[in-house]
């Protein structure tokens, strides 16, 4: 019985370590994603006038649509 108890404890420790590793990885991924977001926001002045790209966006879409049709 003490041997079984010992093994159970070891297994439990392994499971807990695995959970901690997974949580640490999740935290690392979140931090990486947040850092990427901060980096992107540093360039916000390049995006702030996105609303003015309506005409060029429509033109681009129209040319893509025509190209797609022509290839059919």
């Amino acid at each position: 019985m003490p041997v079984n108890k010992h093994r159970e404890t070891e297994n439990r420790i392994r499971e807990l370590r695995q959970s901690i590793d997974e949580l640490e990885q999740q935290l690392l991924d979140t931090r990486k994603a947040e850092n990427a977001q901060h980096e992107t926001l540093d360039h916000l002045d390049e995006y702030i006038n996105a609303v003015d790209t309506k005409v060029s966006s429509l033109k681009l879409f129209w040319s893509e649509l025509k190209r797609e049709w022509a290839s059919l």
Binding site: A50, V51, T53, K54, S56, S57, L58, L60, F61, E64
Partner: peptide, 9 residues
């Protein structure tokens, strides 16, 4: 939605 069309490529 129109602005998003700029990413069509």
């Amino acid at each position: 939605t129109i602005v998003s069309l700029g990413h069509v490529r």
